[in-house]
Amino acid sequence: MKKIAILKYIFLCLLVSQSFFAQTAKFKKGKYNFVVAQDGSGDYKTVQEAFNAVTKLKSERTVIFVKSGTYKEVITLEADKNNVTLIGEDMDKVILTFDNYSSKINPVTNKGYGTGGSSSCFIIGADFYAKNITFENSSGAVGQALAISIQGDKAVFKNCKFSGFQDTMYGADGRQYFKDCYIEGSTDFIFGSSTAFFDNCKLYTKGGSAITAASTKEYINFGYVFNNCKITGTGSRITTLGRPWRPYAAVAFLNTEMSDAIKPAGWDNWRKVENEATARYSEYNSSGTGASPTERVKWMKNLTADQAKLYTVENVFKTTYANPPVIDNWNPNKVINLYK
């Protein structure tokens, strides 16, 4: 009986080992091109090393899996590294972080990094997709300090977290889609000129002038679109929804629940009355104690039901950021559906 039990145990061990090695082989060679792991169990120990290994101007997607860990490094995906997918093991356990900020001295130039140079992560290549990743600037409340700078067109983020204080997230001319994401910061923590759609996202404000500081180009129909989102914060009446970094800033909140962190006026003109004539600020079906429809500034717009129907993912992203815009009917859900 004892001999039979030992044989059964050995047999079970063999089955488990075979299953493990089969899954590992599939994990590394089938589903992903590269695996990043700090403990050396992957192809690379840093995300930047994996980005460096991506073939330039590749038409097929390069898929990178990142194992849990805090990766303290300034990360740059160059312009000629397109169609890159970055998938984390767990959003709360895969943290891409650094602690540069605007006035911090860059040892290379002996000058401050500036706002644009302070980012922990620079996404310049087009058609980037990230899932289950935290992008962080860990410098704290020290002024402008970006967690991510998105400069490539057609960037998609699913179940990602963006953490910082002032100027957490920057988007340049181009299109970005955020699905089921969490974004936190203080003053202007979502800023830039991009057309960005925030779908079912959570925004957490730590106070400051405004959540958004858009600089949408005049010829662009849609700037920031927040749909089915939720806003909370550290206190009551500590911020507005937006202030125009440049004239013609466009921001719309639809079907969004707002806590009392939002000031009743809702919007700010950045101390320039002339911005009230150009800023394209609107709301539809706002709810919660921060909605305050009767106390909003007079120069924002309440969308009708028919106008709100125009704010769909398909319609917002159907044209490029070129001048004049070109119809290409970009659909970010196509890349999301590849990695469910």
Rank of each mutant, 00 (worst) to 15 (best):
K340E: 08
L12W: 08
E49P: 05
V251P: 04
A308N: 00
V313K: 02
I123S: 02
D180R: 09
S236G: 06
G164E: 00
F222R: 08
Q144M: 11
N221M: 06
L338T: 14
N159C: 05
T55R: 08
P325G: 03
D39R: 05
Q18A: 11
G223L: 06
K263L: 14
G30P: 01
G125H: 08
A261F: 05
F191N: 11
I75Y: 00
G114T: 14
R175D: 04
A155F: 04
N285S: 13
L12F: 08
Q18M: 13
G125Q: 09
T168F: 07
N106K: 04
Y284L: 09
R61G: 05
F226G: 04
K28M: 12
R296M: 03
T195Y: 04
Y311S: 03
W330S: 02
T304S: 13
L86A: 04
D180Y: 08
K161V: 06
K81R: 12
K263I: 14
G266W: 01
L96P: 01
G174C: 13
K93I: 01
K111A: 15
C201G: 03
A37Q: 00
N83I: 06
V251C: 13
G185Y: 06
V251I: 15
S118D: 02
D99V: 09
Y101L: 05
P293G: 10
C201Q: 00
Y182H: 13
T234S: 12
S139T: 06
G152P: 05
Y248K: 00
K158T: 13
I327G: 01
V326Q: 11
A252T: 13
S194Q: 08
M169P: 04
Q38T: 01
V326M: 02
K217F: 09
E60M: 09
I238Q: 03
D43M: 01
T55G: 12
Y219D: 12
Y170A: 10
T195S: 09
V316N: 03
S120G: 07
A172G: 11
V108H: 12
S292C: 14
R280M: 03
R61C: 02
S292M: 13
V108G: 10
G40Q: 03
E136F: 02
F197I: 11
W245F: 15
E314Q: 08
I262R: 07
Q18T: 14
F226D: 00
Q144D: 11
A141T: 10
N323L: 04
C201K: 00
A50H: 05
V47W: 01
E257G: 12
I327M: 11
S163V: 14
N159F: 04
F128T: 00
A126S: 14
N82K: 08
F98K: 08
F65L: 10
A126T: 11
G174F: 02
D260N: 12
I190W: 06
Y71V: 00
D153I: 01
T70H: 12
F189H: 09
Y44P: 03
A37T: 07
I4C: 15
K334Y: 14
I238F: 05
A322H: 14
F34K: 02
R237C: 09
F34I: 10
S102M: 15
K45F: 01
P244M: 05
G192A: 07
R237V: 10
L203Y: 12
